[in-house]
Amino acid sequence: MKNRLVIVTLFIGMIAVISSCNRPSADEFFQRTVLNTNILHDFAQESFTRTLTSTIVKSENLPADPKQNNQAQQIVEAKIAYVEQTIGRIKDMTPPDEDAGAIKGKSIDLFYYVLPVYKKEYMDMAKRCDNNEDVETIEQLALAIEEDYAEGFDNLYLEVLELGKAYAEKHNLNVKFGN
């Protein structure tokens, strides 16, 4: 009987240790769920369109570099990979306290909001850039993305930031938020 009690106690203790290993500090949690959203700052913005269309510019005096045939697609693929990786990392985290659960949920919502747009609309736009299609047509696609997704993105992004500000203040995290 004593042996069973010892084994059960050790088993429960081991489970507690394992489950707490995935519990980040307040600062680590904040960095992963709130600060990581900075990668999305140019979503549904003219600046991301400029980044993609800047790959169209080719020098007439230099031979075409085969590595440059898909520069815009590589930019979008990098965003997609980062967003997917971040979603996985956030999902795997155990919130360190009660306030963190809401931030985790909103942050995941935000990343899931942008992911299909990067995969479909932005990838389509990138392919057009890599094929040296008309910049005006590409800019019209960008405008459609802004019209369809900017407001929803802004709302989710601001929710994450507001929750993040309150969380940072509560946990005395040294964070400065821009306007």
Rank of each mutant, 00 (worst) to 15 (best):
I18W: 05
F111S: 05
S54M: 10
A168W: 01
I18K: 10
F48D: 02
E136H: 12
D134C: 02
L143Q: 12
R89D: 06
V17C: 08
M123S: 12
T9I: 08
E146K: 13
N131I: 06
E146H: 07
R89V: 03
E169Q: 12
G13K: 10
T9M: 11
Y167C: 07
E159S: 11
E60C: 07
E151G: 09
I39Y: 14
I75C: 03
T94L: 07
Y82P: 00
P66S: 14
E28H: 10
A168P: 00
E28C: 06
C129M: 04
A81Q: 13
G101P: 02
L163G: 06
Q85L: 10
D99G: 11
N36E: 15
D42T: 14
G164H: 02
T86A: 10
R128Q: 13
T53G: 06
D124Q: 12
H171F: 03
D134G: 04
L62C: 05
E159V: 08
V6M: 13
Q45C: 07
N174A: 09
Q140A: 14
L158G: 07
K165A: 09
M123Y: 07
D99L: 08
A78H: 12
T53K: 09
R50P: 00
I39V: 11
T9L: 13
G105R: 09
M123I: 03
V83C: 02
K67P: 01
K120C: 01
D65K: 13
D109Q: 13
T55A: 08
K127H: 06
F48Y: 08
I12W: 07
L115Y: 02
D65I: 13
P24V: 06
K91I: 10
M1Y: 14
Q74M: 11
